[in-house]
Every structure is written in C-alpha cells, then in structure tokens.
C-alpha cells in the first residue's frame, strides 16, 4: 500500500502529473479577485475566507477526473481489480496520495493568498485550518465522480458537475467556521466539528462507492 502511495506521489510530480496545476489555478483565481472587486480593503478582508474556499474547491476538482482514468487507459486498473488487497483500500490510498499531491499544496499556499485578500492573522490561520480539514472530503467525494466517469473519454466536466452538489456542505461549513473564528458572536467549534465529521464520513463512503463504481465499469 505504501508502494501505491509513493508511486502516485511520484507520478503527480513528474511530467504531466499536474500536481502544481491546481496551485497555479488557485493562485490565478484568488489573484484576479482584488482587480475585479476593486481596492476596497474592508470588503476584501470580509469576503477573503469565502474566496479562498471557493478557489480551493475549484482547484481541487481540476485534476480529479484523471484519478482512475489514467490507470484504466494503461491497463493498471485491471491488475488492481484482480488483487487480493481490497479495492476499497487501494482507492483510499490513491485518494490520500492525490490529496497529498494536489490538496496539501493548496493549504500551504493559502496564507500567501490570504495576504492578497487583506485578511488578518486569525482569519488566515482559521482558513488554513479549515482547508486542511475540509479539502480531503472534496477528494473523497471527487473519487466517486471520477470512478463513475472513468470510462467516459471527456469525463472531466461531468466529474465536476457530479461532485459539486455533494461538496457544497463542505464549502458551507468550511466558510462558516472560518468566519466564526473572526467574528465574535458566532462560535467556531460547532461548524468546525461538523466539517471534521463530513470529512470522516466521506473518507468511508467515498472509497466504498468509488470501488463499487470501478467494479461495475470494467469491460
């Protein structure tokens, strides 16, 4: 299993892996917002956490469609389906590797982009923490979409459309927890704990559903 994790990490940083594409997209989205909104610093710092979250959500969805498609195209998926190792476990490890390669860089880049949005230290810290906890859920949800669309030649957009509705709760609780840390009356812990619960829930449901979809898609 460690072999699979390391292989997927290696693949995502080698040519054509696309680990950095997500970060670049994230930076592009967030960097153009101040130009569009205008130089209103108060407004920017107020919408900052939400913009960071939306940018991270979209960036997370970018590379997801290749998660299983690349394996299917070169025949590796057939070999994985045949192994004694439960497919659910292989899918979980692939999700973790995908998140480490493309989700974790977003979390690391978020403080820098928070400065673009004139956010204070508390808001930056809270957004980073909620992204750290929340982005794995997006990967697990996305794995289901990627598995369903694995046989479709242009599944990329379809994956995003399938996945977005399910990822909305992650966005809502992520943003509300980030805001709660800044604005006094709202409590930080309840939305943050729900966010953790969502991630744990999809860490179980996602690989199960994705494995079932992969099994039924083999032809």
């Amino acid at each position: 299993m460690i072999a699979l994790f390391l292989r997927d990490l290696k693949l995502s940083v080698r040519a054509g892996g696309g680990a950095l594409i997500g970060v670049l997209f994230f930076m592009t989205v967030v960097a153009v917002i101040p130009f569009g909104v205008g130089p209103d610093l108060n407004l920017l710092s107020r919408i900052g956490p939400a913009i960071l979250w939306i940018g991270a959500l979209l960036a997370c969805l970018l590379g997801l469609d290749r998660l299983f498609q690349a394996e299917r195209e070169d025949g590796s998926l057939d070999v994985m389906l045949m192994q004694e190792t439960p497919l659910v476990l292989s899918v979980l490890v692939k999700c973790l590797a995908h998140w480490t390669a493309s989700g974790l860089p977003l979390v690391i880049a978020s403080p820098l982009l928070g400065l673009f949005m004139n956010m204070n230290e508390v808001a930056i810290g809270a957004t980073m923490l909620t992204l750290l906890v929340g982005t794995p859920a997006i990967t697990f949800i996305g794995a289901v979409g990627a598995a369903v669309a694995v046989a479709l030649p242009r599944g990329g957009l379809l994956v995003s459309i399938l996945v977005l509705p399910l990822a909305i709760p992650v966005l809502i609780f992520g943003v509300s927890a980030a805001y709660a840390a800044v604005e006094d009356p709202a409590p930080f812990l309840p939305p943050f704990l729900i966010l953790i619960a969502i991630t744990l829930f999809f860490a179980v449901i996602g690989p199960l559903a994705a494995a079932a979809a992969l099994r039924s898609s083999s032809d």
Binding site: A3, D74, G75
Partner: peptide, 26 residues
Amino acid sequence: YLGHRNAMKRELTVSENLVFWQDFMG
C-alpha cells in the same frame, strides 16, 4: 493478467514500475 495494455506508467522508469508491481502484488 497480461492484456493488450501493458499496465506500466510512461512517466516512471522501468525499474520503478516493476518494483511497484512487485510490492503491490506480492
């Protein structure tokens, strides 16, 4: 199962591919 497709990653070296399958398949 050796199908029409080779089940090897183009980006990885030959040894890396084989070491991976050896570890993964057992």
